[in-house]
Deep mutational scan, measured.
Amino acid sequence: MATGGRRGAAAAPLLVAVAALLLGAAGHLYPGEVCPGMDIRNNLTRLHELENCSVIEGHLQILLMFKTRPEDFRDLSFPKLIMITDYLLLFRVYGLESLKDLFPNLTVIRGSRLFFNYALVIFEMVHLKELGLYNLMNITRGSVRIEKNNELCYLATIDWSRILDSVEDNYIVLNKDDNEECGDICPGTAKGKTNCPATVINGQFVERCWTHSHCQKVCPTICKSHGCTAEGLCCHSECLGNCSQPDDPTKCVACRNFYLDGRCVETCPPPYYHFQDWRCVNFSFCQDLHHKCKNSRRQGCHQYVIHNNKCIPECPSGYTMNSSNLLCTPCLGPCPKVCHLLEGEKTIDSVTSAQELRGCTVINGSLIINIRGGNNLAAELEANLGLIEEISGYLKIRRSYALVSLSFFRKLRLIRGETLEIGNYSFYALDNQNLRQLWDWSKHNLTITQGKLFFHYNPKLCLSEIHKMEEVSGTKGRQERNDIALKTNGDQASCENELLKFSYIRTSFDKI
C-alpha cells in the first residue's frame, strides 16, 4: 500500500482533458527560462521544448504516446526543470519506465491550478516501474492521483506527508504495488545497510526511497516546507523545498512566496507586481503582455491589467481597466465587458449561442446573426445582446428569417469595421425574408467608422429604411451602385405612401 494514499474509496472516473512563447529569463536562482504550460502528445517531438525550461508557468501534460519505446527515452533528460506552477499529468506514455532521468531536479509542483483537485496525476502508464522524482520536495496545493499503472512499484516507500501538507485526498490505487509483488529495495538494503531515512506512518517504520538508488530526502521537522541542505541544516524561511546553503534567500532552489532578481522575498516591493503567484514583474512586463494579447485571437491570451499590486489576466467583477495605466478602477454604474472572439468572429444561430455573449459591452471581433427560429426570440436576444455598444469588426445579418427588427441591439452605437466582410463591408444584410426595420432612427444613433453597407434580398425592408441608415451611420456616399439592390429590397412591402385627393359631386333626387 502506498504510504499516505487512500484505498478502496469510491472515486469519480478520471477524465483526461485534452506555445513556446518565453516569458522571460528567471535569473540567477533558476538555471534556465520560464516556459508556458505545455500539452505534449502523440510523439516526442515537442518534448524537446523543455530543454531550457527551469519553470513551467502553467501545467505540463505528457500523454497518448503509443509508439514510443524505452530506448526512445534513454537520452532524454531535462535537468534544468525545477518547478511547475500548476500540475504534472502523465497518461498512456508507452515505453517510459521512470522519471528519474527525465526530470531529475523537479523540486516543486505548486498546484496553482489543479487537474480535478490533483497536482500530480500518473494514470495508465503501462510501462512505468517507478516514479523516480527523487528531488520532489513540495506539492504546495492539491493532491496526488496514481492509478492503474500495472508495473509501478516504489510507492509504499514514499512518505507523501513530507511532500504535501495533507495526504487525506491522495488516491493511489490499482498499481502493481497493490499486489505486494514489488519487493522494493532501498539503497544499501541488499548489503544489509540502512542508507535512507525511515519514518513512521500508520504504525509502520519504513525506509523512504524513490528507487533502488535514490533515497527520499527527509528534512528535520523544524525546517517545515522550506527544505534543508545535504547536511540537514534548514533553508531560509522564504525558500521552498530545498537550498544549497542554509538561511540564505539567494540560495533557495525555489521560493515559498515570490522570486525577485535572484532572491526569494515575502512580497513584491514597489515598483514590482505579483505575477502568477510566484514571481515579481515590473510595469513594462505587464504592459507588454497586455499589448501582445490586445489584437491576438490565441486562446488563453489575456490583456493583463494591474489590481491590488498584482498583474492579473482581467479586472475583477465591479472594476474596469483604465487604459492609460492598466489599473483596475471601480465602475460607475454597470461595468464594461470586452469579449474577445477566439477566431475573430462568432455566429449567433440560437439563443444558446447568444447567451455566451451575455453582459458583453464591447465585441472584439465580428458578429454573424443567422437565426431561423426560436421561442420568445426578441426578448431572449435583447437579454443577451442588448448591452453590446461596440463591435470592432463587422455585423452580418444573414438568412435570419425569424427577425423582424434589429432593435434587440438596443445599445449598439459603434461598428468600427477594423475587419470587413469580403474585404469591403462593415454591415452586411443578406436574404432576411421578414426583416422590416433596422432601428427606430428617431431614437437610435449608430456610427460606422469604416467599410460599406450591403443589402440584398431583404424583400420587406424598404429602401427608405436603408437610406436612413446611410445618413445616420455616416456611410452615405461610400456605397457603390450594386451594394444596395434596388429590386430585391422592399419588393414585397408597401414602401411608397402617396396622399390621394378626392373630389365629389353631391346629387339628390331633384338636383344634379
Rank of each mutant, 00 (worst) to 15 (best):
Cys268Glu: 00
Ile146Pro: 00
Arg298Ala: 06
Pro220Ser: 03
Asn202Asp: 11
Pro31Arg: 02
Ser143Asn: 10
Cys264Ser: 01
Leu240Asp: 06
Ile158Arg: 04
Thr68Asp: 15
Asn282Val: 03
Ile109Glu: 00
Gly58Ser: 01
Gly203Phe: 11
Gly318Pro: 02
Asp75Asn: 15
Cys335Met: 05
Asp184Asn: 13
Asn135Gln: 12
Gln204Ala: 06
Pro316His: 03
Thr221Glu: 13
Lys191Ser: 11
Arg263Trp: 06
Ile158Cys: 03
Phe78Arg: 02
Trp278Ile: 15
Val55Gln: 01
Ser77Phe: 15
Pro79Tyr: 04
Ser296Thr: 11
Leu120Gly: 00
Cys235Asp: 00
His291Glu: 15
Lys176Leu: 02
Asn175Thr: 09
Ser237Leu: 06
Val218Thr: 08
Asn135Ile: 00
Glu180Pro: 07
Asn195Val: 12
Ser323Val: 15
Leu155Cys: 14
Asn117Val: 06
Ala156Ser: 10
Arg297Tyr: 02
Leu152Arg: 01
Glu207His: 08
Tyr272Ser: 15
Cys182Asp: 02
Thr199Ala: 10
Leu233Lys: 09
Cys53Trp: 00
Ile84Pro: 00
Ser284Gly: 05
Leu44Ser: 07
Tyr273Pro: 05
Arg74Tyr: 10
Glu124Val: 02
Gly262Pro: 06
Pro270Cys: 08
Asn149Arg: 00
Gly183His: 11
Ile185Cys: 15
Leu44Thr: 11
Leu50Phe: 10
Cys234Tyr: 13
Ile56Phe: 00
Gln299Ser: 05
Tyr154Lys: 02
Ile146Lys: 00
Thr199Met: 07
Ser54Lys: 04
Thr85His: 02
Glu97His: 10
Asp101Pro: 12
Lys310Leu: 11
Ile146Val: 11
Tyr304Ser: 03
Phe275Val: 14
Val121Glu: 00
His48Met: 03
Ile185Tyr: 09
Asn308Ser: 09
Ile40Phe: 15
Val108Pro: 00
Cys331Met: 02
Asn150Asp: 04
Lys129Leu: 06
Phe103Gly: 00
Phe115Gly: 00
Cys252Met: 03
Cys182Phe: 07
Tyr304Trp: 12
Val34Asn: 07
Glu33Thr: 07
Phe123Thr: 05
Leu60Pro: 00
Asp184Glu: 07
Arg110Lys: 12
Leu128Trp: 01
Asn149Phe: 02
Phe115Arg: 07
Leu327Ile: 05
Ser317Ile: 03
Gly95Ala: 11
Gly37Thr: 11
Asn42Val: 09
Met65Gln: 05
Lys176Pro: 12
Glu266Val: 10
Cys315Pro: 04
Leu174Gly: 08
Arg46Pro: 08
Pro79Arg: 08
Gly37Val: 02
Leu50Met: 11
Thr211Phe: 04
Ile185Met: 10
Glu71Ala: 14
Val305Asp: 03
Cys196Pro: 05
Leu289Pro: 06
Asn242Pro: 08
Gln303Arg: 09
Leu50Val: 10
Gln299Asn: 12
Gln216Ser: 10
Phe78Val: 06
Lys100Val: 04
Gly300His: 13
Glu314Asn: 11
Phe116Pro: 01
Lys100Leu: 10
Pro316Lys: 09
Ser323Leu: 11
Tyr30Arg: 03
Asp184Lys: 03
Ser161Ile: 04
Arg279Leu: 04
Gln245Leu: 08
Pro31Ser: 09
Leu99His: 00
Arg263Gln: 10
Leu106Ala: 00
Pro36Glu: 04
Cys268Pro: 00
Ser324Pro: 11
Asn135Tyr: 02
Leu44His: 06
Tyr154Met: 09
Tyr94Phe: 11
Lys148Gln: 11
Asn242Trp: 12
Thr140Ile: 07
Asn135Gly: 14
Leu174Lys: 06
Ile139Trp: 00
Cys311Lys: 02
Gly192Glu: 02
Tyr30Ser: 02
Phe258Val: 09
Gly111Ile: 00
Asn149Leu: 00
Gln216Ala: 10
Ser161Gly: 08
Arg141Val: 10
Cys286Asp: 03
Cys335Asn: 03
Thr85Ala: 05
Ile222Gln: 08
Met83Glu: 13
Gly203Asp: 08
Tyr94Cys: 06
Asp184Met: 15
Asn52Ile: 04
Leu63Met: 11
Leu240Trp: 01
Glu124Pro: 00
Arg162Lys: 10
Ile109Gly: 00
Asp169Trp: 06
Asp277His: 12
Asp72Cys: 12
Cys196Gly: 02
Pro313Thr: 07
Ile84Phe: 00
Glu207Ser: 03
Ser161Glu: 10
Ala190Leu: 09
Ser225Lys: 12
Lys67Cys: 09
Ser317Gln: 13
Gly232Trp: 12
Val253His: 15
Asn195Tyr: 07
Phe66Arg: 00
Glu207Arg: 07
Ser317Gly: 06
Tyr87Ala: 01
Lys191Pro: 09
Phe73Thr: 14
Met137Val: 09
